[in-house]
Computed example of a mutant assay.
Amino acid sequence: MTSHTTGTRDDWLTARLSLLSREKELTRQSDELAAARQALPWVRIDKTYRFDTETGSATLADLFGGRSQLLVYHFMFGPDWKAGCPSCSAIADGFDGFAIHLAHHDVALWCVSRAPIEKLAAYKKRMGWHFPWASAHDGDFNFDFNVSFTEEQQRDGSIEYNYAKNRHAMDQKDPPETVKQGAADVGTTAPAYSLDRPGLSVFAMQDGDVYHTYSAYSRGLDSLWGMYQWLDRAPKGRNETGNWWKRHDEYPD
């Protein structure tokens, strides 16, 4: 017998209608937040960023592909890593499905990482993905948009991520268990793993100029996890202890 609260259909309907009222309010708040995001001031990008892509060198403006809006997912894949981040991989599993719809709504979607393009292309082939992925291996792009950091920042605790400064330097000899596990998952050291974080950066192009319009990090990316939107509606919710997910080709049959 279930340990969860049970009741009649009428009990359920009463509770469901109460919840529906709260869901509608959350939807209205979400609409208001979306409008507030779109109302943020734009910041013109005067720096020239160059990327390596599977079709050659490209600028930030080139990534728009003739569209006026660009979404960049900062995929955690450091230069010396053997594989991409499993969490980013879980998010990216949904990109192919909706990228074509975004493209037909004047929005380009790209992933950007610091790993060399050869590694990105090989991992993309392994995962069976088709969305475009660029390497910012030799540039400042990831650093300027606060998803990659230097070893000096790591040592002195001056990393700023998700609009807050990390005032504590990481213990190089005994890093947190979550960092150790993350490093093991991608085949690198804990210090090297900690130099890259996930994020979303958004850009607009107008009259030939590129503008930065929005960025989000950490749990600000929650809504991009397609699987979480489904789990939040499942009877047991996320029901998780630690990072339970794997790359989609690593689950047992």
Rank of each mutant, 00 (worst) to 15 (best):
A134I: 13
E177R: 12
P176E: 01
A61D: 08
A34E: 14
P79T: 14
D156S: 02
R28F: 10
S218I: 09
T27A: 15
T178P: 04
D249I: 11
D11K: 01
I159Q: 01
W230I: 15
D144R: 10
D93H: 10
K82Q: 14
L20G: 06
W12G: 06
S68A: 04
L70Y: 00
D140V: 04
F131G: 10
W133A: 05
S18D: 13
D253P: 04
G94W: 07
N239E: 13
A164S: 07
A92I: 04
L109D: 01
Q69M: 06
C88W: 02
E160M: 11
W81A: 15
F51S: 00
D31L: 14
G66P: 02
L17A: 12
K173M: 11
D52T: 11
K246Q: 14
F95V: 01
R9P: 07
E23F: 14
Y251T: 03
A192L: 13
A183L: 09
T178E: 14
C85R: 11
P175F: 03
M205R: 08
L26Y: 07
V147N: 08
R238F: 09
A204T: 10
S158A: 00
H130L: 08
D140M: 08
I159M: 05
G84Q: 07
D11M: 00
L20K: 11
D52I: 06
A36R: 06
K24C: 11
K125I: 10
G187Y: 04
G56Y: 03
R197E: 15
Q229G: 13
D222F: 08
Q29C: 09
A122D: 13
T189V: 00
A234Q: 14
A36D: 05
E250P: 02
C85V: 03
A134T: 09
A58D: 11
N239S: 15
D52H: 15
D10I: 14
V186C: 02
A58M: 08
P116N: 13
A234H: 13
G237K: 06
R219T: 11
S89K: 01
R22F: 10
A61G: 04
G187Q: 07
C85Q: 09
